[in-house]
């Protein structure tokens, strides 16, 4: 973070430079790697003209956030409970570890059978992936609370409820946040993958797939790059909030 901005620009500049070299030397077909002017032309028409790609960007972000919000609202309390009550942990842990091993995308056909072609199936896929990660991290967060810290609470004369609220939850928060951050990236990735399969004509995933079918390589690249930018920016935003509100992380 302390590095000057120039240093952080090195990787993108190298990427752009090699792209330019490869295209100008005609090392690969423009279908696989369109020229940079073609790319910028496509970007302009997709982003500056109305409506362009904006409804798709909105749909993808919306689905990711809805799935993440539901996963967090259900997963954090469940994970905390699992970490707090050893009996619940013992009975659910192996099931959750198994659930984590199933790639969420493989469940997409099942979701279609259950929810039909539509928004529900598109949200269920990232929701599944996110909730498992969030539950497990919340559980580990609570399990990892140092015993001494709980003892300090009890010896201070605090009630069980007060120890839970004032010691266990804040102590677990950094690990819970790790789960949420991982889930945030995952929700975007899984939403885009699900959109590529079936069930919608809106969404970045759908558009990337369609551009490929119609050999619009430049447009396809623009959509891919936008997906990258969304993932990058949301992650940065999350880290800024984390530093602000969970400042004791890793301290």
């Amino acid at each position: 973070m302390k590095h000057p901005i120039l240093l952080r620009l090195i990787a993108p500049l190298i990427l752009l430079g090699s792209w330019w070299v490869v295209v100008s030397l005609r090392m690969v077909s423009p279908l696989i790697l369109p020229s940079i002017p073609a790319l910028s032309h496509a970007a302009q028409s997709l982003l500056l003209r109305s409506p362009g790609l904006w409804p798709d960007i909105g749909a993808t972000i919306g689905r990711s956030l809805v799935s993440l919000a539901i996963a967090a609202a259900a997963g954090v309390p469940l994970g905390v409970l699992m970490g707090y009550v050893p009996l619940i942990y013992a009975s659910l842990e192996s099931g959750l570890e198994f659930a984590r091993a199933i790639p969420p995308v493989t469940l997409f056909p099942l979701f279609i059978l259950a929810f039909g072609f539509g928004e529900l199936s598109l949200i269920a896929t990232p929701l599944y992936g996110c909730i498992v990660i969030i539950i497990l991290n919340s559980t580990y967060g609570v399990i990892g609370v140092p015993k001494v810290r709980r003892t300090v609470g009890r010896l201070s004369g605090l009630s069980r409820a007060a120890v839970f609220r004032k010691i266990i939850i804040p102590d677990a928060l950094p690990q819970i946040t790790v789960g949420l951050r991982t889930a945030l990236s995952l929700s975007i990735v899984l939403t885009i993958v699900a959109e590529m399969l079936v069930g919608t004509d809106r969404g970045l995933g759908r558009k990337i797939y369609n551009y490929q079918l119609s050999f619009d390589s430049a447009e396809m690249y623009v959509a891919i790059l936008i997906a990258g930018v969304i993932g990058y920016l949301t992650n940065r935003l999350f880290v800024v909030c984390q530093r602000r509100y969970v400042h004791w992380t890793d301290k």
């Binding site: 140092p146 001494v148 810290r149 300090v152 609470g153 201070s156 004369g157 605090l158 009630s159 007060a162 004032k166 010691i167 804040p170 102590d171 928060l173 400042h247 004791w248 301290k251």
Partner: peptide
């Protein structure tokens, strides 16, 4: 182990007031 004993999300003063919260 004072590091595990203190609450890192609280300032020095708010660590000291913890028992008074009972």
């Amino acid at each position: 182990d004072y590091d595990k004993s203190l609450l890192p999300w609280r300032s020095c003063l708010d660590n000291i007031t913890l028992p008074l919260e009972a």
